[in-house]
């Protein structure tokens, strides 16, 4: 049986264990200030249509200007408004119509006021082979980012360039226009905010 003498021997052992054991050189408070910088990439708007479906009016005559719009409620979402520090939009336009055109892309707010706009010039196709036009639009700095973060609608307006040979677009015009777009969102997510 254990007697007092033994206890005296054990006690310091346990005291030692209890006193030397601790958690040190760590700072758990830093977890409150976590910053991460993911980069998201997402497809945005796309279309692919023969010229004779949108550069032609109901009477079969050439329309000098075609327009379409789409509501996009992601740019002014809380997540992007709080965390987006830079955005890069990439557009790729393929044209196989023997007419050049200019594409104006407007970013509108909920009041339909233009927040940001730019145009992309696309050359006419020769022999109905694809002419590829790339455009990169960068949103950086307060002004551009604020414009993007108040956007909830993108409007695409295609304006035909003058015809080099006098020909007009009608129901029989060959060729199509294809547009692809993506956005790269650079984020700065801070748990402290």
């Amino acid at each position: 049986m254990l007697n007092y003498r033994h206890l005296k021997l054990i006690k310091p052992l346990f005291l030692l264990l209890l006193t030397v054991s601790c958690v040190k050189d760590v700072d758990f408070d830093q977890a409150r200030n976590l910053t991460i910088n993911p980069v998201l990439e997402a497809s945005i708007v796309y279309f692919n249509a023969p010229a004779n479906t949108f550069f032609v009016n109901d009477d079969g005559e050439e329309l000098p200007e075609a327009q379409d719009a789409t509501v996009i409620k992601v740019f002014n979402s809380d997540f992007l408004v709080d965390n987006l520090i830079r955005a890069v939009f990439t557009f790729k336009i393929a044209n196989s119509v023997k007419r050049g055109f200019q594409t104006r892309i407007d970013f509108l707010n909920t009041e339909d006021e233009v927040q940001h706009t730019f145009t992309v010039n696309t050359a006419a196709s020769i022999n109905n082979e694809d002419v590829i036009t790339d455009h990169i639009e960068v949103f950086e700095g307060d002004e551009a980012l604020t414009a993007l973060k108040t956007t909830n609608k993108m409007v695409f307006t295609a304006i035909l360039s003058p015809s080099p040979d006098g020909s007009v677009i009608n129901q029989n015009t060959i060729g199509r226009v294809e547009l692809k777009s993506k956005a790269t969102f650079f984020l700065n997510i801070n748990t402290d905010e």
Binding site: S43, I44, V45, Y46, N48, A66, Q67, D68, K180, S181
Partner: peptide
């Protein structure tokens, strides 16, 4: 599967 938004329809906006 999400590929983006395809707004182009014959009727204008």
């Amino acid at each position: 599967t999400f590929s983006g938004i395809n707004p182009l329809f014959p009727d204008v906006s």
